[in-house]
Amino acid sequence: MNKFCLITNRNKDADLELTNEIVKYMTLHQKDCVCVDRKENCGYTSNSSSGNKGQTFSEEIEEDVDCIIVLGGDGTIIQAADSVCGLGIPILGINLGTLGFLAEIEKQQIWTALDSLFEDNYSIEERIMLHGSLIEGENVESLGIVLNDIVISRSNFSRIINISIYVNGELADSYRGDGVIVSTPTGSTGYSLSSGGPVVKPDADILVITPICPHTLGARSIIVSSGDSVRIQINENKQPNEEGAVAVLDGRPAGELKAGSSIHITKAHEKTRMVKINHVEFFEVLRKKIGQGGEKG
């Protein structure tokens, strides 16, 4: 790899001290480096090529960039993945946050990791993504592409929502509750996990549908093929004005829903390409970062 783009979370590297050190190291090794969200380049507000709304990473990232290096936490990595997925450029995450489950590299490993990139000593892991559309009557609006999850939840002023879940047009479940999460395997260790959903290996080709605080004992997570079509419909409640809901794509509010509105979710054509250097197994990372199980006996 010879040309890199750095995306820095300014809350994690406020003075750009680490960012500048990486730039100097790349320059020393005669590598090209472009920075996003630095003071001299921070005027980026355009939408990404993937069509996602409200993203802050620029379309001006050149297509011949070999690797995007993200300095921040999981949120920054997810936002970068959603924003640049249309470019197909592999992403390496450097953890400057707390958990950093998606980040391949910890801060103390940066220089060794950069040397591995310079020497082409790495592999690429592809992660599936989701595409969501808002359906209201005859109108269909694309909401964008996400790496983690699409969440339909009650709005601030609604007490509860009544939803129906359809898979390939067939009714799978209906219940009243706080909402539902449709996640990729990557997103299974996020909101879905905290809502009682299963942990899924990131290379699995499935989707996870997890209810949020359902008012029934029978509602549980549903596993479907990534090729399946999922539709979440908002139904009328017994009391008026109680069906207000919102759609949230990877933490980004994407639209208000009312009775009769639906969110259509399918696997996106695009994929997130993650750089792997350490080759640490998934369950080892899971144990260390989320506390699954104890130490090896």
Rank of each mutant, 00 (worst) to 15 (best):
N2M: 09
Y175W: 14
P90I: 03
R231D: 08
G54C: 04
G179Q: 02
K288T: 13
P90M: 04
N11T: 15
T45Y: 10
E104A: 09
I105A: 02
H269L: 13
D15K: 15
A14Y: 13
F118V: 11
K107H: 09
Q233L: 11
I160D: 10
D205P: 01
N148T: 07
E242W: 06
G86F: 03
M1N: 07
L114V: 05
Y191K: 11
K289S: 11
N47W: 02
C5Q: 10
A80F: 05
E236I: 02
L114D: 00
A14T: 14
L249W: 02
V275Q: 10
E243N: 12
R252S: 05
D205Y: 08
G293F: 12
L193D: 06
L117I: 02
S194K: 11
S142L: 08
F118A: 04
V224A: 12
G137E: 06
N47T: 04
N139V: 14
G297S: 15
I161K: 06
Q108R: 06
I68Q: 03
D178I: 08
K258P: 00
E281G: 05
G179M: 03
P90C: 02
K258D: 05
F282M: 09
K288Q: 14
V280S: 09
E281K: 14
A113V: 01
I7P: 07
D149E: 15
N237R: 09
L96Q: 05
I22R: 06
G54V: 06
D66N: 12
F157N: 15
E295A: 14
I163M: 15
T272G: 08
D173H: 15
V182N: 12
G293P: 06
V180I: 15
G93R: 02
D64M: 00
S116V: 00
L96C: 02
E21S: 14
A219C: 10
V36T: 08
S58Y: 01
N2Q: 14
L147E: 03
E284A: 07
G54I: 04
K31I: 07
D15C: 07
S133I: 00
G187D: 07
D32C: 05
G75H: 03
T216V: 10
Q233M: 13
V248L: 04
T8K: 11
I161Q: 12
Y175S: 11
D32T: 13
K267P: 00
K288M: 12
N168W: 15
V70E: 04
G144H: 06
N2A: 08
D250T: 01
Y122R: 01
S155D: 15
L71V: 07
N237V: 05
E242S: 12
P90Y: 04
S58D: 07
S195E: 14
T76H: 07
V246C: 06
K107T: 11
V167E: 14
I78P: 01
R38A: 11
D115W: 01
Y44I: 08
D178G: 13
N156S: 15
G187S: 11
I290A: 08
Q108F: 05
P240S: 10
T216P: 11
P240Q: 06
Q30L: 13
I160G: 09
L117M: 02
E104V: 02
F101N: 01
F282I: 07
E21G: 04
